[in-house]
Structure formats: C-alpha cells, structure tokens
Design a protein around this nucleic acid. Structure first.
Lengths: 202, 202, 202, 202
DNA sequence: CATGAATGAGTATTCATTCAT
DNA sequence: TATGAATGAATACTCATTCAT
C-alpha cells in the first residue's frame, strides 16, 4: 500500500508534467483559440477525458502552462551574470551565446519565450500586477547589465529598459521562427549583440 | 437610374472597404482562430449577416484581407530606393526613418506588417507558391540594398537574405507592440539600423 | 423600423415564453438531470442553439422556469378566499373544487405544482430565504382558513401549517399522477377535503 | 480452504449488501439520472471500479435495488391483517400506526416506498407486466380491507383501488418528506386514517 | 440591402465503464 | 479483490453560416 500509493502519486505527477509540457508546445504553436482539446489530446497521445482529470478546463490548463513557464532559471542566470566581475560587453556576449545555444538545443526554450511574450501581448495594456513576472524581472536584470555597459561606453545610449525590451524582442522573434518555420537562418551571436553594443571599426 | 445605380455601387464598395479595413485590424490582433464573426461584426458596427453579403465565408474574408495587404506600395518604395544613386547606408537610413514614421502615423501599417508575418508563420514550412509575395519581394529588394552595403563596407557581413529577414523581423516586432500594448517605447531609427550597419567608434 | 423593432421584440418574448413553457412540462416530467438539452430542443421543435440564445445554460433555464412558476395567481385566489364572508368549510370546498378542476383542465397546473414541490425537496433542509415563496405563502393562507375552521369545529385539530402541508401534499401527489401516469383515478373533492374536514355521520 | 472460501463468499455478500443498501438511499434521493457512479462510490466509501465487480452496470444495479425492495414483508403483513377477525376500522388503524412507526424508525422504509412509487411513475403508462409487483399486491390487499370497511360503513364510498392508491400515495408523500427535508411535521395516525375512514361527529 | 434570430456542425466537458496495478 | 487512472461515447455549449423579415 505505501509503496503503491507513492508510485501512484508519482505517476500522477508524471502525467501532469507530460500534459503541461506537450500543451506548452501546442499552445505556443497554435495559440489558445487555435488549440482544440481533441487535437491536443491526440497530440499528447491520451484521451480527451484524461486532460480533465488533471485540469479543470482548457483555460485552467492554459494558465498553468503559463505558471510553469515562469520558472526563474533564466532569470537567475541573467541576474548571476549581472553580478560577475567581467566587462558588460563580455556579459552580453556570454548571455547572447547562451541564449542562441539554448534556442538550438533546448526544445522548450523557444516555446517558453514565445508563450511568455504572447501572453504579455494578450494582457494588452492593462499593466496590472505584472511587476514581478518572469518577463519584467528578466528585463530588469538585463537593463542592469545595459546600464553598466553604457557607463563604460560599450553599449549604445538610450533607455536601458527599452534596449532590454528590444534585445529580448529579438530573442522572441527567433523563438517564433524556430517554432513555426523549418527553413530559416538563425541569427549569429554578433547579430543579436548588435541590438545593444556599439560597433567597432573593423 | 444610372446615377442611383452608380451611387449604389459606390456604397457597396465603401462598405466592403470598411469591413476589410476593420477586419484587418481585428485579425491582426486576434488571429484567425481567435476572431469570432459575432465579435467582428459588433466591432465594425454591423450585423453578422451583413458580412456574408460581401464575403462568402470567414476564410474568404481572411484571404481578401491578405490580398488587400499585399499592395506593393512599400515594395515599390524599397525597390525604388535600391536604385537611387545614394550610398547604401543612406538608403537604409531613409528606409528605416520612413518605416518608423509610418508605424507612428499610419494606423494600418502595423496591422499590415503583423498580419503578413503571421501568415508567413501560419503557412509554416510549406514553402509553397510564396515566392512572389509581398514579404519575399520586400526581402529581395532589401537584400539587394544590403548586398550593396556589404560591398562598400557599411553593412555587416552575412547572408543578405538572413539580414533582410532580421531587419523586417524587428519591424514586425514593433508592429506587434504597437498593436497589442499601449505603453511601450518605440525603438529609434539608430536602433533599427544597427541590425544591419557596422557601428562606428564614437 | 419602429414597427419591425416592436414586432421583433414581441417575437423574442414569444419564443422565450414557448421555451419556458415547454421546458416546465419537460423538467416536471424528467427532472433536471434527466433532461437533455437535445431532447428538450427536439420536444420544443427548435434547434439546440436557439435555447442558448435565450438562456445562458441549462441551469439558468431551470431556475427561470422556477421563477416563472412562482406566479401568485393561485396565492391570490386562496388569500381572497380566506377573506370571504363564508364558512371555512365552504372555503375549503370551493378551493378543493377549484384545484381539482384546474388539475383536469389546465395543462400547466399539474406541472407547476409538481415542479414547485420538487424544488422544495431539492433545496432540502436549507430553510434559507424561502419564507416568502409561492409555497410558503400558499401554505400561510391555507393555514389561515384551517385556523378559522378549527375555531368553528369544522376542521380537525392539529397544527394548521402541518395540515396545510398535508392538504397541498395531496394536491402534489395527484399532480404527479397526472404528469406521469395515464391510467389513474382522480380523487374526488370529498377525498381531498377529508384531509382537513371533520367527517359527519351520514 | 473450505473455511476461507466460505468466509470469502460471506465478505462478497456483505459488500454486495452494503452497495445495494446505500444505493437504495442514494437512488431514492436523486433518481436514476441524478445519480453519478462517482458520487455513489464516494458516498459508499469504495472505489468506482468496485461497484462494477458486483454489478454489471448502473442500470443492473438500479434493477437489483428494485428487486431487493420488493420483499413482501409489508405485503404479507397487510395480507395477514386483512384476514384477521377484527373490524376493518381497527385493521386500518393498526396498519396506519405500523406504517407511521416504521417511517420514524426504519431507515429504509421511506426509501423503499419512495423508490417503489417513483419507479411506478417512471414506467409511466405502460401498464406492462406490473400486475404482480409489490405495489399492486399491496394495493390489492389494502383494497380488500377497504371493501370490508365499506360494507360495515366505516370506510368512505368509492373505488377501493382508488382509495388504496390514495392511502399509499399519502404514505409516499411522507416518505419523500422524510428523505428530503429535515424540518417537517409528520402527520398523525388520525390524519392518515382520514383518507379512508368516515369521520364521526365529536 | 441590412438585420438578427435560427440553425446545426463543431468543440468543450462529463461520466459510465474498463483496465493495469 | 480493490483501486483509481484512463477511456471515449454521450452531453452541454459555441459559433460560422443561413434565412425570413
């Protein structure tokens, strides 16, 4: 009993994870309205009813996908980066390389970025309680690095938040490309960095 | 009779225009699946049935919106620009300034760009007959300018098509921002140009 | 426009009435859980979707049926009766005759009584705000007549409310019989009166 | 082995009994359509699957509940009563007292009566093979007593079957009250008897 | 033409039943 | 056996499309 009960809970958790994970990818590609529960279930490889054993409704599932996305792994990394004793330019380089590598390697990264930004759009202008969200924290830490870079002249002038928004916007752009198109050329690290860095005469 | 018939036709054309115009904005914001005919009709200020007097179906309407978007004004302008006897850098500057101004001024420009790119995504990888579309022509002419710039050293190296894609991707990004969010900072002309131009030591 | 708008509203009202009326009969026979929207729609002779043009959900429809039932025609009649300058026995006789006749004649009466009592049961013991409802008002006025009758010795002793409850319970019983069975013998007026009146040696 | 096999069977029987008993109460309160297997299982305190180890389907369970109800204890008692060498009036009194006492004491009696009558309603008018059922036998024996009473002038005139139906209808009524409501006043023995007996001048 | 109520195919959700553990 | 997660047919509800006015 104890062992089986444990195992049971484990299986439940596993299934919930699977549904969340696959739904994330599906929602990212098709949006909320464009996602049918029947298609989603077929895509996951389970029955429609099973989804409702784990999530009350399509909308609740969507929201939980959103929550699950807001893991602060990425935030932590950028925050950590901002504190390192290296030049801002180098920070931006490391960050950019890491991001582009993740985009290539990690199947979920594109979906996470895409969904996050899309949800940001969907919320529209109601700049409600969204001040401690994934997005805004990421932006804050990036803006910090940008500020540092502006001080030492390696980063272009302009509002740091605007530039952070621009930088991550480009990341979003290529997340979309990864999610939706098969034949596209990924930008280079240098391309991404150019959103922020002052170029140098060759 | 003749005059009234004329007038009638004019009114019909007018209404069709209105529907197309409002639909463009609505589709751009909500996507195809996310747009309900009932909502759209209410948004336009007409009855649901009226839409069907002008368009056979939701999908036909969507396609006509798409067609309507593919006016080659912008293409012509970029093509014309590419032929001017000025430096590539200047061409890029003029183009960028014009684009950003349009984004500020023209209500439809953001929708046109957004819808166009979204449709590109929706088509996914099926690189079907889409070789003479708005998007690809725009890219071609932009790539031409980029090529010119690479020759005189003002533009960064890399596949011209990739860079054109990057450039217009950023334009798409800020079209989305304009469409969906009210509080955002528009990038500067210099920011946009930096996707292509080699920076200079201050 | 004005005329057609009027006519339109009229039609809407008419349809709502039709749905409510037919639903009342259907719910009375089959209960809430036993009523399928598809069956109900077929029974009314409209499409399923039409029901949702007038009522948000099955449950809302059910509740509106309930409200519609709580017309105080019957209450008024009994109240009026209780004030007449005739003997309590006569009042009970008139009331009983009227009730039994309605049961025979009026198609809806049985449904109204049945639904009302059923809903009373469904609410169970939560003797919530139900102190001014159809049922309780009806009981109150009936209890008044019973009190009068007890004073002049024509009505059996016992709690007037209990006796009113008994009296209307029997009416409910025969409403059910009318609704559900085709071959049954209706009680006579004397039978119904016997719930309250002291019998007389022949 | 033999002993454990016996024990096993005993346990099986016990569980079947439990399910039947609890189901009876649940069905009586909620009806067939209103009873969900999941709710029923939770109410019994077992898993959903367990029910299907004992009963093939929800409908089979319902039918077995019905069969289990049709124990002829009550019938026998009434039949026996009808043969006793006492006055019809006394028979009716004993029967009524016994019924009301059972309603107070026996947890199942109300459910049995209610379910039985409800099933009668559900069958509707199809007066199928239901001529030897619990209900009809009970009615027959009651009608017999009524006949006897009519001969000696203690029972009101009218079709004995109709009066028996009336009498048991009132019993059904108060079974429902017991099942569904917590605050109600039970009728007195005299109240119940009055459905049949000719009253006397005080 | 314009309307908006009506329609029914399509989609979300529930629930009786099955099955692996 | 008992369990409760998984299933999918049945049911509630939505929305693109039609049609009478």
């Amino acid at each position: 009993m104890p062992k089986s009960a444990e195992r049971c809970k484990e299986i439940r958790t596993q299934m919930k994870e699977t549904i969340l994970h696959k739904s994330m990818l599906y929602f990212a590609r098709n949006g909320f309205a464009g996602t049918k529960i029947s298609d989603l279930a077929r895509n996951i490889g389970i029955a429609q009813g099973t989804i409702y054993l784990y999530f009350e409704s399509k909308e609740v599932l969507y929201r939980e996908v959103y929550k699950r996305i807001n893991r602060d792994d990425d935030i932590k990394q950028v925050k950590y980066l901002s504190l390192l004793p290296i030049s801002p330019k180098e920070k931006i380089h490391i960050m950019s390389k890491s991001i582009l590598q993740k985009l290539e390697t990690d199947d979920n990264f594109a979906a996470i970025i895409a969904l996050n930004t899309q949800m940001l759009f969907e919320q529209g202008s109601d700049n409600s309680s969204s001040d401690s969200t994934y997005q805004s924290l990421l932006y804050k830490h990036t803006a910090k690095i940008i500020s540092q870079g502006q001080k030492d002249g390696s980063v272009v002038s302009g509002s740091p938040i605007k530039l952070a928004d621009y930088y991550w916007g480009v990341v979003y752009l290529y997340s979309l490309k990864k999610l939706f198109t098969s034949n596209y050329e990924m930008i280079s690290c240098a391309d991404l960095e150019r959103t922020l860095l002052i170029g140098k005469e060759k």
